[in-house]
């Protein structure tokens, strides 16, 4: 559905993105992950035809973004990062305007706007000026305008930024509901969001794509060992020593979370990747008469993966 080919964009002489190529299949939800300033917004603006690439091109639904921009724009719904809306218009009037310029049939308009307002839960603010809406409502109006005319491709730039936790959950739910109908690209710098919503992740840093994979595969690929998080009520030195002697344990890393006067200590126990040491560890603790407070597998979070990937890349560049 989306094919980007060696997209490069220079602002003056600084490259915002360089040789960015990727494809997104029909119906997929793909997350664009990267720190601020990595080139997410630039890439999205290029795909929507708002910015021209310095070189390279992309096709959306088979139409070239440069030579066939109008056809591309007919097929996308776009939510820019800053959610720029006409603050002097009322919600319903604004959506009416968007429906008109997007070419929603006159007879369909009312019904289609009503449906989308319901989906985005903005029915009760439809007569309110956009300028007096809260950030969360504005975001939803922004998503609503993107959804009009049932676009084949949805491009959402940081759709959950600036929202409260409840709203974030609602928006994520909404995006999940949309999967299947539309192909969705969304950008974020919040890692859990990607693993929750997206089927595939494109990690971008400093204008380069450094990894493209499913969240699960990324975790598996970068995890060389299995990790357990263990919290024990017992003497630190003895616990550590006993654990080291346990067969299969590679490394023990105390996790400094205990407050002063608190007897409980936490460790990260690393073992060979294929071995599950939970039984052995728990038996050991119980046999020694210490208190076993917590024991769970500690998977690498996307944060760690991200940091790992970024540092790896830096090492490559230096080496």
């Amino acid at each position: 559905m989306i094919e980007a080919e060696k997209l490069t964009k220079y602002y003056d002489k600084v490259a915002a993105i360089e040789d960015v190529s990727f494809t997104v299949d029909k119906g997929e939800i793909v997350g664009f992950l990267g720190p601020n300033g990595a080139g997410k917004t630039t890439t999205m603006r290029i795909l929507t035809g708002f910015l021209p690439p310095s070189s390279g091109t992309a096709r959306v639904a088979g139409h070239d973004i440069l030579t066939d921009s109008l056809q591309v724009r007919r097929r996308i719904g776009y939510l820019p990062e800053a959610v720029p809306l006409y603050t002097d218009m009322k919600v319903a009037a604004y959506l009416e305007f968007v429906a008109e310029v997007k070419g929603v049939e006159r007879r369909e308009r009312r019904r289609s706007i009503g449906q989308i307002m319901e989906k985005c839960r903005i029915v009760d603010v439809q007569r309110v000026l956009i300028g007096s809406l809260s950030r969360g409502y504005r975001q939803r109006v922004g998503i609503a305008q993107a959804l009009l005319k049932d676009p084949e491709v949805l491009i959402l730039d940081e759709p959950t930024v600036g929202l409260d936790p409840q709203q974030i959950i609602e928006i994520r739910q909404l995006i999940k509901e949309l999967s299947g109908q539309s192909t969705i690209i969304l950008s974020t710098h919040i890692l859990p969001e990607v693993s929750m919503v997206c089927q595939r992740v494109i990690i971008i840093n400093d204008g380069h794509i450094i990894a493209v994979d499913t969240p699960e595969n990324l975790t598996a690929r970068l995890q060389s060992s299995a990790k357990l998080l263990l919290t024990v009520d017992g003497p630190v030195g003895q616990v550590e020593e006993a654990l080291t002697r346990l067969p299969g344990v590679l490394r023990i890393e105390p996790k400094d979370e205990g407050k002063a006067g608190d007897a409980a200590v936490s460790f990260i126990v690393e073992s060979e990747r294929s071995r599950d040491l939970r039984r052995e560890v728990s038996r050991l603790i119980v046999d020694k008469g210490w208190g076993l407070l917590e024991l769970r597998p500690a998977d690498m979070t996307l944060e760690e993966i991200f940091i790992r990937l970024v540092t790896e890349e830096h090492q490559e560049v230096r080496g």
Binding site: G49, F50, R73, R74, I76, Y78, P80, A82, P84, T87
Partner: peptide, 14 residues
Amino acid sequence: KSGTIELLFTYPIR
């Protein structure tokens, strides 16, 4: 100034 031109330019309007 308000950035609304970004959306306007990505609508299918000549």
